[in-house]
Amino acid sequence: MSLVQAILIAIIAGVSRCEGDWLGECKLREPIVTGFLVGLVLGDVKTGLIIGAELQLMWMGAVGIGPVAQLDIGIGGTIGTAVAITTGTGAETAILFGVPVAVIMQFLNTLLMSAYSGVMLSADKKIDALDFRGIRWCHYFCGICTFLAYTIPTFIVMFFGNELIEGIVNNMPDWINTGLGGVAALLPCLGFALLLNIIMEKRLIPYFILGFIPAAYVGFDLTMVAIAAIAVAVAWIIFMLRSNEGTAKVAANTAADDEWED
C-alpha cells in the first residue's frame, strides 16, 4: 500500500467518526459507504462494494440505545475492507480484522468522551463569560482530537502494518479460514435478527413475509412453502383489517349511545 493510499484510508476512517458530530447524520459511517470509498482509493470499487455490503448486513442491527456506546462500525468497516482488498481475500478476513477494531475503537471513544468532560467545564465557564470565540475553540478542539485519534492509528496500521497483516492472513490454518467463512455466512442473519428485534411488531410480520418471499426466490421457482407463506400473510392482513373494522364499529356505536344519552 502506498503512502497516499494509507493517508486517504486514514482520512476515510476519521471522517466516518465525524458523522453525528460535525457532519450530522449523513451515513458516512455505514460499511457500504466506507467500502465504496476504500475500494475507490485502492482501485477495486467492485470488491469494496461487495465486502462493504456484506459487513453492512452484519452490522445493520448494531444500534446504540440510550447512553450505551455502539460498535464503531465506521473504522471497523474501513480497516476490514482495506485489509480484505489488499490481501485479495473476502468478507471473512474483513470480519477477522474489522470486528476487533470496531470493539477497540468503541472503548477508545468512551475514553475520549470521558476526557472531554474537562473541556466541557471550560466551555461552561466561557458560556458564563459570553466568550463565544472560546466556546467555538472548545468545539473545534474536541473534534480535531477525535479526528486525529482515528486517522493516526489507521494510518499506522495501513502503512506500517501491511506486511504483518499479510503474514497473519497467509499463515492462518485452513480450519480458521473455514470457521471464519461460516461466521461470515451467519453474521448477516444475526444483523437482521438484531434489527427485527428493535423494529418488528406483530402487525408488520405479514408484510415482512410478503417482502421476504420475492427476495428469497428471485431467479427460482416458487415452492409450496413459499406459496403457503404468501397465503398466510394475505390471510393475516385480511384478519387484521376486519378486526380493525370491528373495533371501529364498536367505537362508533359507543359514541352514538353516549350522544343519545346526552
Rank of each mutant, 00 (worst) to 15 (best):
L42S: 11
R29M: 10
Y140M: 04
Y116S: 08
N253R: 09
G80C: 02
L57C: 13
M60A: 07
I51W: 03
V68H: 04
A6T: 01
F36K: 05
A62T: 06
V15G: 01
V33D: 02
L241Y: 10
A251G: 04
G179P: 00
L23Y: 02
A69T: 00
I127V: 14
M1S: 10
F97E: 01
D258F: 11
M105R: 06
G61K: 00
P31W: 06
D257N: 14
L3P: 00
H139R: 10
I9M: 07
W260L: 14
F141G: 06
Q5M: 00
E201V: 12
V63C: 03
I32F: 11
I213K: 06
W59R: 01
K249G: 03
I237E: 11
L121I: 15
Q56G: 08
M240H: 02
M224F: 15
G118N: 13
I152H: 00
A102F: 00
A184V: 02
A255F: 11
A13E: 07
G43H: 13
V45I: 15
Q70R: 08
E30I: 08
D174H: 02
G74L: 00
S117P: 04
T154V: 06
L194I: 03
F147L: 15
V225Q: 12
A235P: 06
A255V: 10
F147V: 05
A248F: 06
V41K: 11
G61L: 08
E19L: 03
L121G: 10
A6F: 07
G39D: 04
C18P: 01
D262S: 14
A185H: 04
P31Q: 07
G66H: 02
I156Y: 10
M172T: 01
P153G: 11
G98L: 03
I199G: 06
D258T: 14
D21L: 11
F220T: 12
D262W: 09
C142K: 15
G14W: 08
N109K: 06
Y140R: 12
I237S: 08
F97K: 03
A149L: 13
R29N: 12
Q56H: 14
G88Q: 09
G118V: 13
S2H: 06
L37M: 13
G76M: 09
I75F: 04
G66V: 03
I50W: 10
T110W: 12
P206F: 06
G64R: 09
W137M: 10
S122L: 15
F141C: 07
I152F: 09
S117H: 14
D21F: 11
I9T: 04
I144P: 03
A226D: 12
W137D: 07
T223N: 13
A53T: 15
Y150F: 12
G246N: 14
A216D: 15
L186Y: 05
L180S: 09
A193G: 01
G182S: 10
F239A: 02
G167F: 10
C138V: 00
A233S: 07
Q70C: 02
W59P: 00
A6L: 04
T223E: 15
L180M: 14
F36C: 12
K27R: 12
I32A: 06
S16I: 02
G167N: 11
T87C: 05
R242G: 05
T247R: 14
V101P: 08
H139F: 11
L3W: 05
L8D: 00
I209F: 13
R242F: 11
I11A: 12
N171C: 00
M158G: 01
T254E: 05
T81D: 12
G134V: 07
C138S: 13
N170G: 02
A229Y: 04
